[in-house]
Nucleic acid binder design. Structure first.
Lengths: 194, 194
DNA sequence: ACCTGAACACCGTTCAAGT
DNA sequence: ACCTGAACACCGTTCAAGT
């Protein structure tokens, strides 16, 4: 497959950090994380692999960090209703969206779980904590609860992707996810003084 | 570093599947998953990398499956007390052990989350379901609850490894883990007819 | 500034060969 | 049966060179 460098270079959009990360996500979603290589990514962008390093100086590490940020940064909408009393509805909405996002990009789940990109989940966690605080939970309980929620959603998504069902027949994962979420919400409500 | 093949071959223990996986786990725990290569693993076992394939015909895939099984297979002790009423204590004990195991071998967490080795978590999930069933929960609630527990523990362990704390000062992860677990247990108790 | 081409030090895996 | 050595088709990344 031969490309004419000078001519083709005019016809394609300029290489940007964003275009690179989107193309990488497309490869991961379609072929799996194991097939994401700098050379293949270059092919997808109609560019030599080495051109990528000009936009992501830290190379593949920075690329993977970008994928995690693109998928895992998704704060809960605090003021969607404006009423703190709707905290359960807000959390249900966020959890459903977050789960869908993780399942849609299941290939990056192992990266979300790894140490990379420590700041990626921070904004999400902070938004959950704030919702619980506004709902009336003490500071400490709100912080603990935010992690319980995020941990549950990520962990359950991981089990879903694996199709881990311990010899059960057909499993309604959506219903199972919701049932587990309600367990956590029930526990949180029991801590709520209001 | 030169070895005398015939002599050294006599002095070292025979290569077995188990010895290979234990050596691999040592590398992952000490240096990280990224540094686990067949060649380095061979070095650690004082053997050429290619010798490993004789014991693990599916190669590195089989090696990683073995690591997951070694870490993630840890069923809850159902009959530790013999009394179903102690279901909460049994689950607390299991969760604490499982968390410790995952944190001890944090390098394999991304593998646990990946699709590999679908049977690895089955026995663990089944034991949790059985405890909840014996505690008096309906079949469906027991199955959902087992996944909620496993999902929470795995997800929270992943957050702990990342040290994900959204700009908080010092975090007592052990206490936070326990607090989140109690949320789930409270939710489960609310479903219990007894 | 942005991209290329060649090169380097690694990978996992095969395969024929040794004992 | 168990292990080795050489070889193959890949990797990520560097670096000097082009435009």
């Amino acid at each position: 497959m031969v490309r004419q460098p000078s001519v083709a270079a005019q016809n394609r959009p300029p290489l940007t950090r964003e275009r690179i990360i989107e193309a990488a996500l497309r490869i991961v979603d379609g072929q799996g994380l194991g097939r994401l290589t700098m050379r293949r990514l270059g092919d997808a962008l109609e560019v030599e692999a080495m051109a990528i390093y000009h936009h992501l100086p830290r190379g593949k590490e920075e690329l993977l960090d970008g994928l995690v940020a693109h998928v895992a940064v998704h704060p809960a909408q605090i003021g969607r209703t404006g009423r703190a009393a709707d905290w359960r509805a807000a959390l249900r909405g966020w959890a459903g969206d977050y789960r869908a996002r993780l399942l849609e990009h299941a290939g990056v789940l192992p990266l979300v779980v790894t140490r990379r990109n420590p700041a990626a989940l921070a904004s999400t966690t902070a938004s959950l904590r704030e919702i619980l605080r506004l709902a009336g939970l003490p500071e400490r309980a709100a912080a603990d609860g935010a992690h319980a929620l995020l941990g549950y959603v990520i962990g359950h998504a991981a089990l879903e992707v694996r199709g881990e069902a311990a010899g059960e027949e057909a499993v309604d994962w959506q219903a199972r996810f919701t049932a587990g979420l309600e367990l956590v919400l029930t526990g949180l409500a029991a801590q709520n003084p209001r």
